[in-house]
Design a protein around this nucleic acid. Structure first.
Lengths: 134, 134
DNA sequence: CTACACCCTGTACCATACTACAGAGTCAAG
DNA sequence: CTTGACTCTGTAGTATGGTACAGGGTGTAG
């Protein structure tokens, strides 16, 4: 089991070398031991750690939240219920963002529909709407 | 029609004084004339300009996009169809973001459902999923 | 032995949309 | 005339998630 260089870790994790160092600075991955010349020497396990980070990012977690998830994972007192609760909070969060985006979309759809009604007129309903009183 | 001070403009527009200056630096509002002591003196119309910015932001446009909308508005060659096309691009954009969020949500919902199935087990399906191979 | 890829630290930079000063000048009320 | 609120410029900081050097040292293949 030879230790991995930072470049090998980056490749296997599907991220950049700079990003690995960035995650280290952010406390998402711990500082690995160094070779006598100062090179970082990673155990294989770090790759799954990076995969964890990537998957969690895909699920909408921020790096700050992922840091918490990672420390939860290491804590033997963490229960499945703890993780579930985090996931549920994030679900609520995502739902709120979806609702907000849907509101934007609905307004825009209404405005473009109004455009269709008066293709010939010079005044544009979109510009008019944007000038409305609060 | 007395000119408005930057503070009055900020109050009426519902934004901060620093933000008014920031918008000026960003080219979203033009530089107003100055009093003999160097104070900015705004015409009333600037307030609707700021309202325009605020409403467009609420619709999901970035400041950069809003800057374009504002210059389109001033250009007499701009047609309602131009505005409609911008709005449609933004709608597509918002829909993509909604789809992406929904994907995240679905994955999280599945994971929390898996949690329910094995409340007694020690291993957590969420942590397991995050450790999966790419 | 030389070339070239890789690694090191530290710092600065990208976009986004502000926000917060410092240090100075101005305006209006009492 | 003083006091306090307001304004000025310019710069720097906030959060987010990286990316890009510069200017060195290291490791290995031919």
């Amino acid at each position: 089991m030879k230790p991995l260089s930072i470049g090998q870790v980056a490749d296997r994790g599907g991220i950049g070398v700079e990003t690995v160092r960035f995650y280290e600075r952010q406390g998402l991955i711990e500082e690995p031991p160094r070779s006598k010349s100062g090179y970082r020497e990673y155990p294989e396990i770090i790759v799954s750690r990076i995969r964890f980070i990537r998957r969690a990012k895909e699920l909408g977690f921020t790096l700050k939240e992922i840091k918490e998830l990672l420390s939860l994972r290491l804590d033997p007192a963490t229960t499945c219920a703890d993780m579930k609760s985090r996931a549920e909070t994030k679900i609520a969060d995502i739902e709120a963002r979806i609702r907000s985006l849907r509101k934007m979309k609905d307004s825009l759809v209404k405005l473009t529909a109004a455009c269709n009604d008066r293709v010939t007129a010079n005044e544009c309903p979109i510009l008019e709407a944007l000038d409305q009183e609060p």
